[in-house]
Design a protein around this nucleic acid. Sequence first.
DNA 1: ACCGCCGGGTGCC
DNA 2: ACCGCCGGGTGCC
Length: 548
Amino acid sequence: MVEGQDPVEVFMRLERWPLSPLEVEAEAEEEENNSQSSGEMYMVGFVIANVVGLQYYSGRISGREIVGLQREPLNQYDPNAIKVLNTRSVQVGHIERSAARVLSPLLDAHVITIDGIVPKVARPGNRYKLPCQVHIFARLEAFGIVKSAITNGGLYLIGESDPSFTLSEAEVVKEKRSTPEGRDIDEIFKLLDEKISKKEELKALEPPKNIIKSELLLHQKEGLQWLVQRENSEELPPFWEEKEGSYVNVLTNYSTDKRPEPIRGGIFADDMGLGKTLALLSLIALDKRGGFISSSIRSGHQNAERDDGLDEEEDKNTASISKRNKRGRVGRKTDNSRKKQKTERANTLQVKEKSACSPESRSGNSSSGTTLVVCPPAVLSAWISQIEEHTKPGSLKSYIYYGERTGDANELAKYDLVLTTYSILASEDTWIDSPIKKIEWWRVILDEAHVIKNVNAQQSRAVNNLKAKRKWVVTGTPIQNNSFDLYSLMAFLRFEPLSIKAYWNSLIQRPLAQGDEKGVSRLQVPNVNHVFEKDQRKGSNWFAIKIY
DNA sequence: ACCGCCGGGTGCC
DNA sequence: ACCGCCGGGTGCC
């Protein structure tokens, strides 16, 4: 890159931070999940079970929808209860008792997973119950047990040999037969593909020169333009169409009068070494055209020691972040080239404290103009050095929320950029007074976002609780066809409907797991991504992703 | 709910 | 009538 500094090298020289107990736990959980899902699940068949209680819930259902089926073991009336949620995750009712009694024990034993589809709206008038196709999936070796359990439980299982099987609305079944009326799912994806590729050729966008002192490469300028476009888009999100004043999701058939919010953000997945950090710093810089005169990079513990309002005069010294180095982080000059290698030697990363934070800035209420960057500890110093290298001193006010740190949300909201780590977020997730949780961020950037690939990990939960107007997930890791669960990213970005597990499973995950090309091609469609041609030419089997 | 089900009122023709 | 039948009250889990 600029001045011969290659961010990849910087990154590679940094060693991985020792695992915190939280991370160890998360990794263990992840492994458990993986081993659980490693046995491939196939569809056993489906049963028709009524959804009841529709009149008691606010959730609407338009029919032909995939519904969420969720165990509710603590239900006060029935420990076998299964909740039914519509596409928007609002409860519409329950699975009738008689069916829940049979399904719940199998669910609780992890023998089966289920998807629900309400095939069509019977009558749009007063509805007290709706038939629901409950599709049942199990490992091949469990088929026998599952079939007999369901039949003995008094439910009628419609398997492949049954003539009614063709009535199934499950994707796996629908894809096998031609769809005479209505659009084929892959047709929908293709249309979307065309719509997007027709759109803007990316122009190059210059970053504000009063903040960004480095010259951007062409692809970075284009990347910056893309980032800006994505954030300011007023378009309907993918899969949504406007029809006669209401909005219909063509994948889910969900319709609503409320215009769905555009997606502000997405997945920024340039190849490693293409300078994503600089593009992102430029994006942040654009928020404050005009810029500020003074600013600083501050380490959290320094600031906390002087949390008495005097720091403005005193902050003129040079701070070292030696504290973190002690714990095993490697500085820039270390020779290690393997990320994960452990090294005790650490060079001190010098960070200059140039001047105090000026108190002008945006007012410190719960809604701020601040960008929160979350990254693994090993990447923190890379960000710091990139800020030093590419921005004019003091032009981007940055705060490192790590180690000893402020508890004051108003203080944090004064900065342009707050840096923190996934484990910090995880550890504060249960802490009500966490300033991180109080702020509605202008923008949240998850760097090295593959660390949250397990949705159930505490770090992922913490990140999903963040409030933000714009959201980006950034990864330089090639996304292997199925080794990387994108679902978690979809959930974070709230990229409906793929952020809903049932949809993700039926449209992407299950086809992928069963080696169906459709799963891959759907991911490669630009709604979810942009395939870099050079990578295809290389014949590599990964692709970069940008959500449109 | 134009259902099913419960339980009280009722009782030849 | 320890029944059948009628019709009102009622309704997720």
